[in-house]
C-alpha cells in the first residue's frame, strides 16, 4: 500500500467532499478501473477505520451519484462541535471516499485529467440525470472551446497562463497555491 495514498485517505476522511472531482470521476470512461480501485480503497479504509464498507462490486457510481444529488441544497453541518462525532463522520464518508478514489485514480492514470485526451463521456454508464447535473458544472463547455487548438496555439496559451501564474497572488502571497498554478499552467493547454 502506497504511503502517499494512505495519507491522502486519512486526510480526506476528515474533510468535506469536493463534488467536482467526484462527478468528474464518474464521467471517466473506464468504470471497471474505477470499481477495482474502489474495492482496493475499501480494504484500506476498513483496515484503517475498523468498520465495514459497502459490499464489493456494488454500483458505486450510481450510489455516489445518488448521494450527491440528495445532498444538493443541503447545508453542511455546522462545525460547532469540536469532538468528532462518529455519526457525522459516517455521514460524510461516501463523498470523501469518492474524492480519495478520484485522487487514487488520478495518480494511477499518471496524468491527472485532461479534457483533450479523454474519451467522450461514457453515456452508457451515466444516467441522464447525472449528465444534466454535470453540464451545470463550471468545467463543462468553456474548456471544450479550446480543444481545437493546435500545438503551437496551445503552447502560446500555456505561456500566457504561466506568465500570469508567475506573479499570481501578488500582495497576499499564497505560496503553494501559486506554485500549483504554475505546474497546472505548464501541464494544460
Amino acid at each position: 500500500m502506497d504511503e502517499r495514498l494512505r495519507e491522502t485517505l486519512s486526510a480526506m476522511m476528515d474533510d468535506e467532499a469536493d463534488e467536482l472531482s467526484v462527478r468528474r470521476l464518474l464521467s471517466q470512461a473506464d468504470q471497471d478501473g474505477v470499481r477495482s480501485q474502489w474495492r482496493r480503497w475499501q480494504e484500506i479504509r476498513d483496515l484503517m477505520h475498523d468498520n465495514h464498507g459497502p459490499a464489493a462490486g456494488m454500483d458505486i457510481a450510481g450510489a455516489v451519484r445518488e448521494r450527491l444529488d440528495s445532498q444538493r441544497g443541503v447545508q453542511p453541518q455546522p462545525a460547532a462541535s469540536t469532538g468528532r462525532d462518529v455519526k457525522a463522520v459516517s455521514w460524510h464518508w461516501p463523498v470523501a471516499a469518492m474524492v480519495t478514489l478520484a485522487l487514487v485514480i488520478g495518480f494511477g492514470a499518471g496524468t491527472g485529467w485532461d479534457a483533450r485526451n479523454s474519451q467522450p463521456l461514457a453515456t452508457s454508464t451515466v444516467p441522464a440525470g447525472a449528465q444534466q447535473n454535470a453540464a451545470l458544472l463550471p468545467t463543462g463547455t468553456d474548456e471544450l472551446a479550446l480543444q481545437g487548438l493546435d500545438e503551437e496555439q496551445r503552447r502560446q496559451m500555456r505561456q500566457f497562463l504561466l506568465e500570469h501564474a508567475q506573479h499570481n497572488s501578488v500582495g497576499v502571497g499564497r505560496g503553494s497555491v501559486g506554485y500549483a498554478r504554475l505546474v497546472s499552467a505548464s501541464d494544460g493547454y
Partner: peptide
C-alpha cells in the same frame, strides 16, 4: 498537497 482547477488535478 492537491490542487485542482477545471479538468486538471495535480498533486505535489
Amino acid at each position: 498537497f492537491v490542487y485542482s482547477r477545471g479538468a486538471q488535478v495535480q498533486s505535489l
